[in-house]
Each structure stands twice: as structure tokens, then as C-alpha cells.
Design a protein around this nucleic acid. Structure first.
Lengths: 233, 233
DNA sequence: CGCGAACGAAAGATCAGACCAATCTTGCAC
DNA sequence: GTGCAAGATTGGTCTGATCTTTCGTTCGCG
């Protein structure tokens, strides 16, 4: 058990026992180092690790604070995992993503608000216009795609689900995908699938939403399946 | 962008570009620090963070190595997230766990081997004996419970699913649960539910396995629902 | 020749002290 | 009352030293 682990466990314990609450400020480095019985260097290693894990948040000249401990932030490092997986694992990641997003669609069908439906419709309208008039605006199309899925996740009422979907469907996976596919005409098909999902949501039909989402992601996976490996060297 | 972030991104990049392969050893601290243009202290902070994330693995007197980058290891810090969630989020975590474990049961029904079925049967037999003859052996019963679920997850063929279930259904959640429930007679009911799952698996019936697992976890959640909050202070 | 113990090199672990940079607080001038 | 500037506070970084663990080698014994 290294000193740094002492620091991590010590701070974690302080949070779990309510000694430190979300948003609260930690003692200054020198003082906390003495409390935990380590040098400032070791303390900093532990604090840094917790920062990267999304538990702490340091601001030079100000202090170190406990984050809100919201799931999205704490799950963000998971995106890291996805990045590091080799090509062989991609389909497994996508299988989980499909599972989570289908559940999200199902839940959103009953929980989504009229405002959110309007928002999603606006996104799809913009995507439709771009496909017709400015097919080169691929970056924006990708943004819209991500935003559309995010609106759905946001209305599931389950923050853990939101966080996991964000982590799995994050920028990297999507980018890698789209970059490989931009030549194809799949973006138009994707758009149609999105519309089908949206209609199911508007009808407040959970089963339809789930099925449409499942179909959409399965198409995406299929497009991915026969791509050449991208792992360099 | 702090120096430590440079270190994290630098090492991550080296891995992604194949400059560093899983299992490979990193340059010594002094040398790597020079390469990345930071001091040894900053380098160590970054390396430590990546260690805690399961990407690197340091051994005093030997060196620092890239891990196998297996999903289980990389997903382990997610258990940390679960620990830090306040009581209000528990049901959301369990909802996801149910989703994942149901899928695991469904997949395992077609993929499980006869040997694994025997192994699971042995576990359930032992649990049954303990319930009859040594009800005080609660620790062992919990171990068996975890092991049973692990056997199922292990035969889904999806390592990402395995990792996520491990992280979500980890020791802590289960412990908190069982500690609160040991007075009740629920452990016997849980045992019966496990048997029902096992039978569905033996019959290689995916739908039955999924349903039995769903029922099992729903019972668990229900038992949890009306517990008093444990968050101290 | 084979094997085991002791030694030494190498690498990470930890510490202490100094200085830098960003931020916040305080108090003075207008 | 407002605005700005100086000082105090706090995290960020660097340097250099010492400690601990591990691994490889070498030496001596059988």
C-alpha cells in the first residue's frame, strides 16, 4: 500500500463519511499532507489521480474542491477505456451501447416532454436541410447526431444511464465511425432512422421507440463490421 | 492544460499510436520526463493517475509497464463511482445493473458450457447446505452469490459486459445490501431465485433465463427500496 | 559443472525546500 | 461608492537527495 493509495483512500473515506461534502473545499495541501501523514508530493499524486477520476477539482490560486460527484463526470474516464480498446473489442462495446440506448429510447418514450420533442425535431430538420444543400458540412451532421441521442438519453430519468451512454457513444467512437463512412450514402439512411425513432417517441410508444433504436444501431454496427482495422502499426 | 495532463495525453497517444504496446515497459522516469518536457514530479503524477485508471502498472525496483488493457481492469474504477453515489442514485444504478445482468443471462443461456453449469450447481448446492446448517456463515453466502453471477457473466462472450457487471455489482453494493438484509429470510428466497435462473440456463432457454434474472434482481431492488438512508451526517 | 547466497546496479517511492503563477482579499485613492 | 493596486494565499512545478525494492550477476561452495 503506497502513500498515494493512503491519500486516495483517505480522501475517499472522508467523502463517504460525510467529512467532505460535494462542492466543499479541501484543506490546503500542506495541512492535508500532515493530516494524512505524507509529504506534499505524495499528496499531490493522490489528489491528481482523484482529479482525473472526476472526484476532485483543483484551481490554482484558489483551492481544491470536491466535485458535485455527478455520474456524468465520474463516468467520463470510461470513455478513455473505449479509446484504448483494440479493434476486436469494438463490436462488444457497440453491443452494450445498443443495449443501453434501446433502454433509453424505451424510457424516453414515456418521459419525454413536448419541448424536447420540438428540440429533437429542430435538430432533424437541420440535418435534413444539410443533407440536401450542404453535404460537405459533415462535422455539423455528426454534432446533430450526437445531440439527438443526447436529448433521448436526457429524458430517461436515469442519470446513470445518461452517463454511461455519453461515455460509450462519446466523440471518439462516433468520429472513428463517421470518418470511415462519409463516402457512403449512409448518412441519409441514418437520418431516416432518426426520424423513425422520433415518430415513435412522439407517439409515446415505448416498444416502437426501442425497436426503431435497435434497428438504427444495428445498421450502424453493420456498416462498421466490414471496415478494415484502424489500429496503427 | 497542466503538465500532468501533457503526461497523460502523451502516454495515451503513445499507446494509441502503437509506440507502446500492452505489456511493454516504459522508459525510466528521468528519461520519459525529458521526452515529455516535464519534471519527474509532474511525470509521476500523470503516471500515478494512469495507474489508478488501470492503464499502467508500476513495480518498485523494476519499472513501469502498460497493462494488458483488458476491459475488466479498465472498468474497475467505475466501482469507485458507485461507491460515491448518494442514496438517491442507488435505484438508478440498480436499474442499469438489472439491464446488464438480464442481457448476460440471455446470452449465457446459449453460450454456457456444461462445465460452467456444473460449477454453478456446485455453488448453489453449497449455498443450500449453508442455509440449512450454518446460517451464520453469511460471508460465504455472499461470496457464492457473487460467484454465481460471475459464472453467468463469464459465459456471455462479451468482455465489456463482464467488466461492467463486475463494476456495478461489486463488493460494495452487495455488501451494503446484505448487511441490511441479514435479519430477514430473504437469503432463502434469493437462493430459490438463483435455482430458477440455473434451471433456465440448463434448459438453454434465453427468454426464461432473462425473465428469471429480471425477477431476481427486481426482488433485490424491492428489498432495498424501503431501507433507511445510510448516508451519514 | 551446478547451484545458491551475497552483492551491486537500476528503478521507482518518498521527502524536503525553493520558487513560479494564478487567484482572492484587503485597503487606499479618487 | 467605485476602481485599482499591493499583498497574502494556494496550487503548480522543479531540483536534488535518500530510501526501498527488484533483478541480474558474480563469487564461492559442493
Amino acid at each position: 500500500m503506497s502513500r498515494t493509495d493512503d491519500v486516495v483512500d483517505g480522501i475517499k473515506r472522508m467523502i463517504l463519511e460525510g467529512e467532505l461534502r460535494p462542492g466543499e473545499r479541501l484543506p490546503v495541501e500542506k495541512e492535508l499532507a500532515e493530516t494524512l501523514g505524507v509529504s506534499r508530493g505524495s499528496l499531490r499524486e493522490g489528489v491528481r489521480a482523484l482529479s482525473i477520476l472526476g472526484v476532485l477539482n483543483t484551481r490554482q490560486g484558489d483551492g481544491t474542491y470536491v466535485t458535485a460527484l455527478d455520474v456524468s463526470r465520474l463516468l467520463a474516464p470510461m470513455g478513455f477505456v473505449v479509446d484504448l480498446q483494440d479493434q476486436g473489442q469494438t463490436r462488444h462495446v457497440h453491443a452494450i451501447r445498443r443495449l443501453l440506448e434501446c433502454e433509453a429510447a424505451r424510457l424516453a418514450a414515456t418521459g419525454i416532454t413536448d419541448e424536447a420533442l420540438d428540440e429533437a425535431e429542430a435538430l432533424l430538420d437541420e440535418a435534413g436541410r444539410l443533407l440536401d444543400k450542404a453535404p460537405e458540412e459533415h462535422e455539423r451532421v455528426i454534432e446533430i447526431d450526437i445531440a439527438f441521442h443526447r436529448v433521448i438519453a436526457a429524458h430517461t430519468g436515469n442519470p446513470v444511464l445518461i452517463g454511461m451512454i455519453e461515455a460509450l457513444a462519446g466523440r471518439t467512437v462516433r468520429e472513428r465511425l463517421w470518418r470511415s463512412l462519409r463516402e457512403e450514402g449512409v448518412d441519409r439512411r441514418t437520418h431516416q432512422e432518426h426520424i423513425a425513432i422520433w415518430r415513435a417517441l412522439r407517439a409515446r410508444d415505448p416498444e416502437a421507440a426501442r425497436i426503431r433504436m435497435a434497428n438504427h444501431l444495428m445498421e450502424v454496427e453493420e456498416s462498421l463490421a466490414d471496415l478494415p482495422p484502424v489500429r496503427p502499426r
